[in-house]
């Protein structure tokens, strides 16, 4: 199998078959209330970028500091640190490159670090024993999977705006139930990659 087709299969696997939100149930907290497709896409891009960076940083921290220094018990703290640094870098980047985008996301991007998909992907990479290149690709493709998930969810939430959802289910409960039905549909990808 050529490198290209292997990467393509990995992409399909990360975005659809093993989608970080619908197949791994990580990162849902970010999409509770979001109903606008544009901001969802902007947020998804920020997360995808941060996931790519944090995957690389977490790998480097693990291999260059923790393992040589025999501090592997601090892995969770180290990965959290990698996430924070990645989000901080993305914030600097966003402010420099697209001030409007940063503005639309509400000034500080630090709350993005509370997205468990970021910490999750670092842990997944470590558990899978990826090389640096694989970890970066996994972060990028996982981030694209998150982007797909949050944009689909925002579309559905927008559609539900005119629905007569019972008062007790408005907000997060109906978002969870919607995610459940989307996760069922994503099971169709099982076995594709």
């Amino acid at each position: 199998m050529s490198d290209f087709s292997r990467i393509l299969l990995f992409l399909v696997s990360c975005v659809f078959t093993q989608n970080i939100v619908f197949a791994r149930a990580l990162g849902f907290t970010a999409m509770g209330d979001e109903r606008r497709v544009e901001t969802a896409a902007g947020y998804g891009l920020v997360v995808a970028l941060a996931m790519t960076l944090s995957s690389a940083l977490a790998w480097l921290l693990d291999m260059l500091v923790l393992v040589p220094a025999g501090m592997i018990h601090l892995r969770i703290v180290a990965f959290a640190l990698a996430v924070l640094v990645a989000v901080w870098l993305v914030e600097k980047l966003a402010v420099a490159a697209r001030p409007a985008l940063a503005e639309s996301l509400g000034g500080s991007l630090m709350p993005v670090a509370a997205n468990c998909a970021l910490l999750g992907i670092a842990v997944l990479n470590y558990e899978a024993g990826y090389t640096l290149g694989q970890a970066v690709l996994s972060g990028l493709f996982g981030g694209l999977g998150f982007l797909v998930a949050i944009v689909l969810m925002a579309g559905v939430q927008e559609r539900l705006e005119t629905s007569r959802i019972p008062e007790t289910l408005k907000g997060m409960p109906i978002a969870l139930i919607s995610a459940s039905l989307i996760a069922l549909a994503f099971m169709g990808f099982t076995g594709i990659a």
Binding site: V156, R159, L160, T162, S163, R164, I165, P166, L169, I174, I177, S178, L181, I182, A185
Partner: peptide, 10 residues
């Protein structure tokens, strides 16, 4: 749960 006929998205 979504409100009945016309309100489901799937």
């Amino acid at each position: 749960l979504f409100g009945g006929l016309g309100d489901n998205f799937i």
